[in-house]
Design a protein around this nucleic acid. Structure first.
Length: 133
DNA sequence: TTGTTGACCTCTT
DNA sequence: CAAGAGGCCAACA
């Protein structure tokens, strides 16, 4: 397989991606929020897993942005259950308090050691796997 | 309007 | 084994 010529199509300016008639509430963010909301209590997930479930594993970055927007969302999103691939609480600093994320996790019987979820592999909740892809 | 940054992940050198 | 670069889409300056 030839390596992907990541040339980035500069000509694909894309369209406005804004449909005047279509439902505007169909963003990448809402999908992320929906998946995160489905995360059972006491479980944790990763950005990559969610992105993969959505179909774009490369867009893991956007998942993080979605979390940031989750605070502005009208829906309650357990962003503390989402961590990076290493199980580290990367976004703890973005909470109201840097320790809030850890506190919330501990409240759900999730042990956090050194900003890292203990037994992350066991507590890991893969949407594509649990939801059946 | 363009350009840069961002709670990431994966491959390559 | 460690470090670097590439890629995704959206918000902010």
């Amino acid at each position: 397989m030839p390596k992907r010529t990541t040339k980035k199509n500069s000509t694909t300016t894309l369209k406005q991606s804004k449909q005047p008639d279509g439902p505007p509430e169909r963003n990448f963010f809402e999908d992320v929020w929906d998946v995160v909301r489905l995360i059972p209590k006491g479980r944790v997930s990763s950005y990559g897993a969610i992105a993969n479930y959505l179909g774009t594993r490369m867009s893991a970055r956007m998942v993080g942005w979605a979390m940031n927007a989750s605070f502005h969302a009208h829906i309650k999103v357990p962003a503390h259950r989402v961590v990076n691939r290493n199980g580290m609480l990367s976004g703890k600093h973005h909470f109201s308090t840097p320790t809030l994320m850890q506190e919330l996790l501990e409240k759900e019987r999730i042990q956090v050691k050194d900003d890292t979820v203990v037994n992350f592999e066991k507590l890991f909740w893969d949407p594509a796997k649990e939801l059946g892809l």
